[in-house]
Design a protein around this nucleic acid. Structure first.
Lengths: 125, 125
DNA sequence: TATTGTTATACTCTATAACTATA
DNA sequence: TATAGTTATAGAGTATAACAATA
């Protein structure tokens, strides 16, 4: 975990993002989300998310849009800049994780991948 | 990574520790370390470490001891309470990680373990 | 009444730069 | 001069509790 965490931090930093900001942007790659849903996915309180979104919105990486179906709610989405940056983070990170596993035999690698998929699926409600 | 991170946070919290504090205590289970060495292992700046150690020392979980060989340096070590807590964190965390992998076939599990060992060894200078 | 999101407040984590004491 | 650790400062992440607006 710490190996991956360090890798993630080292990848985010040169792009001007904290690891948490990078995470948030990458989560939004799948589409806009409300604050409650986003806080659940990121395992942080909604109040903590408010300030994170504020900072990213100030940098024009995300934007709050009104939810037409619920006037209390809003949808957080990536701006064009945010999407570009999110792709950069994602690509850079996966490239470095790939590099970590290049010296594994292909059969081992596929076993590991399958195991990780099962674990993540089981742990992601 | 995020699955493990969440698990780690959920494990530390009920024990009254932040994930970073839990990490620090667990690193010290291998023996006392100087500030520079500890900051290197934890991938944080020495100045960040100073305040972390301050807080843990205030709670009597770690203690600074003078380094007899270098009067500039100190050795950070666990107190008895700190050691007990570190073991609790470690045991609770490994138990939960174990639980994540119980539904893997034993052969898969050993492949994964071997792979993780190689990756960690390669990534830990 | 319950839920959505925000505000207010208090800590913790973290980095950068400047400093001190010692090597 | 170089290294070990600290201090000062600033910003970011986080939680809890209280709140406004809407459902």
């Amino acid at each position: 975990m710490h190996v991956l965490q360090d890798l993630y931090a080292e990848t985010s930093r040169p792009l001007g993002l904290t690891p948490q900001q990078a995470h948030l942007l990458c989560v939004l790659l799948d589409g806009p989300l409300g604050m409650t849903e986003l806080s659940r996915i990121m395992s942080i309180e909604r109040s903590s998310l408010t300030s994170m979104v504020d900072r990213l919105e100030r940098r024009s990486l995300v934007a709050r849009a009104a939810d037409p179906a619920d006037r209390r709610a809003c949808q957080i989405g990536l701006t064009d800049d945010g999407r570009t940056l999110a792709h950069e983070v994602h690509d850079a990170y996966t490239a470095r994780v790939d590099a970590l596993t290049t010296d594994l035999a292909p059969s081992h690698r596929s076993h590991v991948l399958a195991a990780v998929r099962r674990i993540v699926t089981a742990a992601t409600p």
